[in-house]
């Protein structure tokens, strides 16, 4: 029986003028554009130097700043005041004032990351000239040898894509049938809840896996980035995540009356899950209460695990904990999705 229901879902997806486009164009767009955007590498910080001392040492420092990858030397300013003007008009991001052998670094910290990293780099340059100790420091970076931020972000992007396609499309699906009235016809047939829900879910899992494969190919073609660990583990994680989001979408759909409602509710939860998942910011710097939520956040487990596999080349034991957590959360959601679908009221 489920075979026929599945066939119907696929036909409907194919007939829809919009869906196939979304399913293919959207991931391509995201994969080609987003890694460039989500680049939080702090670069091209514009520095104004207010050099009151005018010594050779300060001249050398300016040269060093000019030579650095991180900074763009914006110019010498006569007074600190003049430099502040530059910051206010967004012509400069950081001021370095050299006066009586003392250094003042003033950074525009509206964007906290940029401000703090910028001033950290700048002070590093300044101090390394002062302290010999620094020359004795060496840094060994494990994984991601190229210091490529994209390597870090691409697996996360895959998660976002899976979430968008496996979450939003099913959420709109059942509400759509409700609004059209076809669900009533299905409800008077002997279709079991499980097969109805499964038939709704399976297509999106397949779409999810297709999208994932597309992403993997694109990341290899466009960025030359490949998975360090086993691809099977990536797929395993993806299936679990797809299971979670598609079930979640259906639950939202079951409880919603209109598409707009379903969309907004989905959006709300998805944004919260994303922000608290550690995708953009480290979870460990969160306050206690917010950190607690990560225990039930499947996105957190997924991001953690897929980065371990994709970037660090982790094996199954390294992600066993996350896989277990994901499976439990996803199964609960799947059961809930079936239970919340009512054939008889």
């Amino acid at each position: 029986m489920i075979k026929y229901l599945l066939q119907k879902e696929f036909l409907q997806i194919r007939r829809n003028t919009f869906m196939p486009k979304i399913i293919f164009i959207f991931p391509i767009m995201v994969m080609c554009v987003m890694p460039w955007v989500m680049n939080q590498e702090v670069k091209n910080i514009r520095v104004d130097v207010v050099d009151i001392d005018r010594t050779t040492q300060s001249q050398q420092l300016v040269h060093q700043i000019e030579a650095s990858n991180y900074f763009i030397f914006n110019g010498q300013k006569a007074t600190y005041h003049e430099a502040i003007k530059d910051i206010e008009t967004s012509k400069a991001d950081i001021i370095l004032e050299i006066r009586d052998g003392q250094y003042l670094i003033a950074a525009n910290a509206v964007n906290g990351t940029k401000g703090s990293i910028g001033s950290a780099y700048l002070s590093q340059i300044v101090t390394s000239r002062q302290l010999i100790l620094y020359s004795q420091f060496s840094i060994l970076s494990l994984y991601n040898k190229g210091q490529n931020y994209k390597v870090f972000m691409i697996p996360a992007l895959m998660g976002i894509l899976m979430m968008m396609l496996c979450g939003f499309l099913p959420a709109l699906n059942i509400v759509g049938e409700k609004e059209k009235g076809t669900i009533e016809q299905i409800n008077v047939t002997p279709v079991s809840k499980w097969s109805f829900i499964l038939a709704k879910l399976i297509p999106y899992w397949i779409i999810g896996l297709l999208v994932l494969s597309l992403c993997l190919v694109l990341s290899w073609l466009v960025y030359g980035i490949t998975c360090e660990g086993s691809l099977w583990l990536v797929y395993l994680l993806a299936i679990l995540l797809a299971l979670f989001f598609s079930s979640f979408g259906l639950i939202v759909s079951n409880y919603s009356d209109t598409m707009q409602q379903a969309m907004l509710v989905m959006w709300f939860f998805v944004v919260c899950m994303l922000l608290l998942s550690g995708l953009f910011t480290p979870t460990r710097s969160m306050p206690e209460l917010a950190y607690m939520t990560t225990y039930v956040n499947p996105m957190h487990y997924f991001i953690d695990a897929i980065r371990t596999v994709f970037v660090r080349g982790g094996t199954f034991p390294a992600i066993a904990h996350q896989v277990l957590a994901l499976s439990v959360i996803s199964s609960v959601m799947a059961i809930w999705a079936v239970k919340s679908y009512k054939k008889n009221s």
């Binding site: 990293i117 950290a120 420091f137 060496s138 840094i139 060994l140 494990l142 994984y143 931020y149 870090f152």
Partner: peptide, 25 residues
């Protein structure tokens, strides 16, 4: 005390940078 070596999880290059800078300081 002839210096020190910092081994860092570099998967997030941004954070790794910051960690080492802070640690060095």
């Amino acid at each position: 005390h002839q210096g020190a070596q910092f081994i860092v999880d570099g998967s997030d290059p941004n954070m790794a940078q910051q960690w080492t800078t802070y640690a060095q300081q």
